[in-house]
Design a protein around this nucleic acid. Structure first.
Lengths: 243, 243
DNA sequence: GCAAAAGTGTTCGCAGTACACCCATGA
DNA sequence: TCATGGGTGTACTGCGAACACTTTTGC
């Protein structure tokens, strides 16, 4: 309970309007070609059949994090996914129907793992970031903020592994970084930094689909990964970061 | 308007409980000695006369940013202060009286500028971060998150200038960095990086209070400062950041 | 044997670090 | 003249950047 203004401080109960509190999810995926976003076609008013982020209201006995996990699971069937609170959007006019605060989360999912059936129930589709449709309300702004955050965070912490399957090739990782930043990176320097980080472990098997020679699979060293998430590790050229 | 669950998608209006939405402010200041926090002694129930962050409810036609600015101004009399949304706290049990979502902001203020009178009205006091009292609800956690964010952000962007007056000495800036990170920094390297950033302009006047020789005042180059806030600039040793 | 992708090394330059002394002044 | 804090310079080194060729193998 908080005072609204100084003159109200003596009063025990303050006038305070309650509001709807929603959670919306910006869901990133990577299919080897481009970074994509999972959007749903709204099957309900207002703005029926427009594209939007997946969202829902926070339930009375549910934390924000739990609401976000629940909503993500509804759409993808996935639990335990990398997810982080992004920003709270609260412009009074953002939802024309009713005052609603939206706490936005972003998630990084292995696009191969999600349950396609669920997405079909929601008329969901993966859109490349370069070909996004117009979204309802302020969802475009949410996506913009999420993209900035992803670039920012991934420049300093190795979170992009979350977008790949458990076994991946260096080529896939490189392509991922290049599509997140829209820039070509030097393969040799990239690999060197990657290997010196000690985060990846080479497997015995090779991926043979995309080349004759075949490319070794790698796995993430999960211990090193967990402890490295808090420290700063970058596979990008420093000047990309420090401009 | 969002669906709560899939089964509700066909329904036009969904059951959704509204909640109180508050904004709390973590207000940092620096007095040349230590980094401090401005706390108020609650003059209202619950938890009357316990210490807490300054907060208030978001008004029906007010954005979150505006609510935060309003609340900060109520306590300090300051406008146009550096302020940033920190995090939304929404544990169902965080406020024992009623379900309340709190969107927390942190602010960096020039401690010499704030209106002491207003603070007295709220029974507010500046506390060194090392001597904080117990705070109500989850305000300790909010402060912890704010401290982490401040260290993180200031390691990459030159935001700590916001805590100093318009005219400052290098010594003050160095002391500030040292108190934010709780570490001693090499004066010569610090100055070199600072100067090579081109962010500060030496004034003609000297500060004569704390030494016989006197130390030049500097001012921030506001143009370079504005454009640099988005890029990465650090005056800290790289290994402090990249561990 | 050739096309296509995988994978590997070296050189150079600069930025970061460590480190110590002189300067100006008031008392 | 001395004590106090202000202010400057250098040498080293290690990391990041730029850059090109060899390897493997399926066709």
């Amino acid at each position: 309970m908080y005072p609204e203004t100084r003159s109200e401080m003596a009063v025990k109960h303050y006038r305070a309007d309650k509001m709807l509190v929603a959670v919306d999810c910006v869901i990133f995926g990577f299919d080897g070609e481009a970074l994509k976003l999972l959007l749903i076609k709204r099957g309900f008013e207002p703005q029926k059949s427009k594209w939007s982020l997946m969202g829902g209201f926070v339930q009375p006995k549910e934390s924000l994090d739990n609401a976000a996990s629940r909503i993500l699971e509804q759409l993808t069937g996935l639990k335990g996914v990398f997810m982080e609170q992004l920003f709270a959007f609260g412009d009074p006019a953002r939802d024309p129907m009713e005052r609603t605060i939206s706490v936005v989360y972003y998630a990084l999912v292995d696009i191969g793992q999600y349950k396609k059936q669920l997405s079909e129930d929601f008329h969901a589709e993966w859109f490349p970031l370069s070909e996004l449709p117009l979204l309802i309300f302020d969802h475009d702004q949410m996506v913009g903020t999420a993209r900035e955050r992803l670039q920012y965070k991934a420049a300093l912490h190795p979170i992009l592994f979350e977008l790949l399957p458990g076994r991946f090739t260096i080529r896939q990782l490189l392509d991922l970084y290049e599509s997140v930043y829209g820039k070509e990176l030097d393969k040799r320097n990239f690999i060197r930094k990657l290997q010196s980080s000690g985060l990846i472990i080479r497997q015995k098997e090779k991926e043979k689909g995309s080349s004759k020679k075949g490319a070794f699979y790698f796995k993430l060293d999960k211990r090193k990964y967990s402890s490295s998430l808090r420290s700063f590790i970058s596979f990008l050229p420093t000047k990309e970061i420090f401009q």
